[in-house]
Nucleic acid binder design. Structure first.
Length: 746
DNA sequence: CGTACGCTTATTTTT
DNA sequence: TAAGCGTACG
């Protein structure tokens, strides 16, 4: 088991105790180290399976770890807590719902549910949603929670933030009443549970002697606090991460946790895993060269003994369409060269770029698969069904109530709901409880609905989970509704799929030997006498939590011999024989929104680093001089990242346009007639407005913003716009007809 | 109650 | 461009 490890890997795996930070570079065997360590600890009786907690970010990673550990150990591994932050916190909250101040059958709000709840709240309280857009409110609430702040703890210094705080407070009480918990709440509640209940805290602190954290660079402050608290009694906290692959700052990840970890656990060791088992030399050295330009790194240089391999190929095409065609042609020859289609990936910075690529792939008949998009449990019809199921479990769940009270339509319109909401507010009850207070025809319709919900609840008591789901699809009228709809066939299939999912869930739970995901040996008499980890949760609640916490695969496509298309973010953790990184243009990658701050640019650079290190043997970097964006043709200069990749590792397949005076020389022999239709008046790469000709790369002066460089041009005539990066004020988009711009000569 | 039209806006995303 | 949202109308 240990023999196949290199020295630093072995050192990491066999640390018997003490905290440690493992800096694990891309492709350095991170997962192997984590799983081998768990197996090693157990096998050498340094830890009981019960003493191990391993935490990841995604269900996929958790599953993989679970499987690999189980494969490495001859014994039952179920006593270990391996899961996502949210999954594990959820488990804690279910086990101690009373102490956590939650109803036994609390439900989980996903991001969309949460937004709906906020919209409802704003409306009910007459908040101006122009001034307080629901999305901003949501961000405020979530980031407050991620800082560990309850509404009362939020500092306010102006009327605006005071109002936000008040909304936050209202939201808290609404959730309380509905018995629902949003994603950040799972973490915050779990933290508070441990903080406030000494016996519970002590129990878990004494239990978990070994804590392992995956993708530590992605943790936020709250997660770090949670780890610190839970790990209060641990022999070892083993945090694995790579600061160079931190690409989620935009959603609250705090790379600083890595440095903090070094400080807070100063006696801990830092081990660097720098041998890369994935990429060939040129690719690796190029990536190293690029990332070296970032400041404040913890420091790490990957190496390989795989040989230098092939040079990185760089391609420049006149348009996004030409770029896509070139890539597709190249893929065709790659497949003749023994590359499997699924060993090839096309990566891009933003989802909008997939269109052109898909179109080109489709018309040449190459099978492809796009990652991302709607996932199973997020589909409208599935969410409707889940809302009914939630009501069957808890009729007081107002969010679910409002979602389906009139879907399918049953004569309960805005008027009826208004009086219901009024009653509920006046008496401080849930909508379900307020039903008897509504008189008249509206009241009887509502009463009918409530009866149906009660009936559904009865059904849950006598039927199995899958039968319940099936039954509810009928009683709710959802099936009928979609049967009548013209294009409802696919939705009906998804509803059937939901029944199947329930069956699978039941089956898996049964295999695991319990109805709710807790190992049997921890339940009933065989467990320690006062084991608090007995989870009182019905199969239905289990299934609903499962649906919320694991929104399902994007689209499990069978017959997987397909080229893989995805964003760079989605590609993290994956690897391919051949990788195309497309759209290497300034403004796109790095993305324009990140250019204002250096931290933004550095994150983009890490993103580029992640993208490059996905490739095993062959890497292509491609760009287009013009591309359709927001319905307008945009002319861009090539990505600064291309300049940052050491030249020794690249080979330009199309003549390299030289940067003359900052703009592109387009005289190269591209394909056919490049800019024919797309080029604006009078020039191949510039825009003429009022007798002044602007070019990408051109230096300009603005009376107020000062000096800057033209990043991109778009539109014609009155629509003509330029995106300009000003030295002092950052990037701005200006209308060329209006802005008083001077060309800086030379 | 459902549809149609017009307006707005436009990274990255897991739980 | 195109999708998503809100309002207005039938």
């Amino acid at each position: 088991m240990i023999e196949t490890l290199n020295d630093p890997q072995r050192e990491a795996v066999t640390l018997s105790q003490g905290h440690a930070l493992i800096l694990a570079g891309a492709g350095s065997g991170k997962t192997k180290v984590l799983t081998t360590r768990i197996a090693w600890l157990v096998q050498n009786r340094l830890a009981s399976p019960l003493a191990i907690l391993a935490v990841t970010f995604t269900n996929k990673a958790a599953r993989e770890m679970q499987t690999r550990v189980a494969a490495a150990l001859p014994i039952n591994t179920r006593g270990m807590w391996i899961g996502t932050f949210h999954g594990l916190c959820h488990r804690l909250l279910r086990a101690h719902s009373r102490d956590a101040g939650l109803p036994q059958s609390f439900q989980i709000l996903d991001t969309t549910d949460q937004l709906a709840a906020i919209k409802r709240l704003l409306k009910a309280n007459g908040v101006d949603d122009e001034k307080y857009p629901p999305r901003d409110v949501q961000r405020f609430i979530n980031s407050s929670k991620e800082e560990g702040l309850r509404s009362h703890a939020v500092t306010v210094d102006d009327p605006f933030s005071r109002q936000l705080r008040d909304i936050y407070a209202l939201y808290e009480s609404q959730c309380e009443r509905d018995g629902v918990v949003d994603f950040p709440e799972l973490l915050l509640r779990a933290l508070e549970l441990l903080q406030r209940h000494e016996p519970i805290r002590t129990h878990y602190q004494q239990r978990f002697r070994h804590i392992l954290v995956d993708e530590f660079q992605d943790t936020n402050r709250l997660q770090y606090q949670w780890l610190q608290l839970l790990g209060g009694g641990a022999l070892s906290i083993f945090a694995v991460g790579d600061d160079d692959q931190s690409i989620y700052a935009f959603r609250g990840a705090n790379v600083g946790n890595m440095a903090d970890f070094e400080r807070d656990y100063a006696n801990g060791q830092v081990i660097r895993l720098e041998q890369n088992y994935r990429s060939h030399g040129h690719i690796l050295d190029a990536a190293n060269g690029l990332i070296a330009q970032n400041s404040g790194r913890l420091g790490k240089t990957l190496w390989t003994d795989a040989g230098e391999g092939e040079l990185i190929r760089v391609i420049e095409q006149p348009t996004d369409h030409a770029e896509a065609h070139w890539i597709v042609d190249e893929i065709r020859s790659l497949t003749q060269e023994d590359f499997g289609r699924s060993d090839i990936a096309i990566l891009y910075r933003s989802n909008a770029q997939s269109r052109v690529l898909e179109h080109a792939l489709f018309s040449s008949g190459i099978a492809y698969r796009v990652y991302g998009g709607l996932r199973f449990f997020e589909r409208q019809e599935v969410k409707h069904a889940l809302a009914y199921l939630r009501l069957a479990s808890r009729a007081d769940d107002d969010t679910s109530w409002l979602r389906v009270v009139n879907f399918p339509a049953r004569g309960i319109g805005a008027r009826s709901l208004e009086s219901l909401t009024d009653q509920a507010r006046a008496h401080g009850t849930s909508l379900a409880q307020a039903v008897p207070r509504v008189a008249g025809k509206a009241g009887s319709h509502l009463a009918q609905f409530l009866t149906m919900v009660h009936q559904m609840h009865q059904d849950t008591q006598r039927l199995s989970l899958a039968e319940t789901v099936d039954q509810i699809l009928e009683t709710s009228g959802l099936r009928d509704h979609y049967r009548q709809q013209r294009d409802g066939a696919e939705r009906l299939e998804n509803l059937d799929e939901l029944v199947t999912a329930a069956k699978v869930f039941e089956l898996e739970e049964e295999l695991a030997g319990l109805p709710c995901g807790v190992p049997r040996e921890q339940r009933g008499s065989s467990a320690e006498p006062d084991d608090p980890e007995v989870i009182p949760m019905s199969p239905l609640d289990g299934f609903l939590s499962h649906a919320a916490l694991e929104s399902g695969d994007t689209q499990a496509q069978a017959g997987e011999q397909a080229v893989q298309l995805m964003t760079v973010h989605a590609a993290k953790g994956l690897e391919f024989e051949a990788v195309f990184i497309s759209g290497l243009e300034d403004g796109l990658f790095p993305h324009e929104n990140s250019l204002n701050e250096s931290s933004g640019l550095e994150e983009e650079r890490r993103l580029m680093y992640v993208a490059m290190t996905r490739a095993r043997q062959r890497l292509y970097l491609s760009l287009a001089q013009s591309r359709m964006l927001h319905g307008q043709t945009r002319y861009s200069i090539r990505s600064r990242f291309l300049e940052e990749v050491p030249e020794a590792h690249t080979k330009w397949l199309t003549p390299r346009a030289t940067m003359m005076g900052g703009w592109l020389d387009q005289s190269h022999a591209g394909s056919g007639s490049p800019m024919k239709a797309a080029a604006p008046v009078g020039t191949s790469n510039g825009l003429a407005v009022g007798g002044v000709r602007f070019r990408v790369g051109q230096g300009v002066r603005h009376p107020r913003f000062g000096e800057g460089t033209v990043l991109a041009l778009s539109g014609l005539g009155l629509d003509a716009q330029a995106q300009i990066h000003f030295l002092d004020v950052g990037t701005k988009t200006l209308a060329l007809g209006i802005a008083k711009l001077d060309i800086i000569e030379g």
